[in-house]
């Protein structure tokens, strides 16, 4: 009985998204020089999304059958939050530390639980350098780098 809530929350997220877009579309002009203005599609689409989200929330709310999978909990949640947090921290430090160093730290953190530290360092440094080589050297892509160019 508790599990229906998760679906409702997700429906609410869509509802909020569509309401924001709907309000924004009202500021765009509905008709243009040849009939349709830049506001026509946004208004109708976000309007439809509002109605559909309401439908979805209603059916989820009403339905007796529980969702196949409830919201993440416990270790599941911890794993996901850990991955997301590592990515966000990675994004934050990459302009400062440069690609190779931050990637090594990133990989090291994610592999920490599965491998012994020396093996882990080996993999992290190796993989980061390999990717740097492929992207920056072979494909000449610009990567965020530190003062020393890596």
């Amino acid at each position: 009985m508790k599990t229906w809530k998760a679906g409702v929350w997700f429906g609410l997220a869509f509802l909020i998204f569509s309401i924001i877009f709907f309000i924004q579309s009202l500021t765009l002009s509905y008709s243009g020089a040849d009939g349709l203005g830049p506001g026509f599609f946004p208004l109708w689409l976000s309007g439809m999304l509002v109605i559909l989200s309401l439908c979805y929330i209603y059916t989820t709310f009403k339905s007796e059958e529980s969702e196949s999978e409830p919201m993440p909990r416990g270790t599941e949640l911890k794993n996901i939050v850990f991955i997301l947090a590592s990515m966000l921290i990675y994004l934050g430090v990459v302009p400062l530390l440069g690609f190779v160093l931050s990637s090594t730290i990133f990989l090291f953190a994610l592999l920490f639980r599965y491998y012994r530290w020396h093996l882990n360092i080996g993999i992290s440094v190796g993989a980061s350098l390999f990717l740097f080589w492929i992207f920056a050297k072979v494909l000449s892509v610009t990567l965020p780098v530190n003062e020393f160019g890596w």
Binding site: K137, V138, G149
Partner: peptide
Amino acid sequence: SMLILSLILGGCSQTQKASSENN
């Protein structure tokens, strides 16, 4: 698989070297 990749890439990495030397 890494070996294969590096073999494949070996052919074209030569062309790249010239441009990075300038730096």
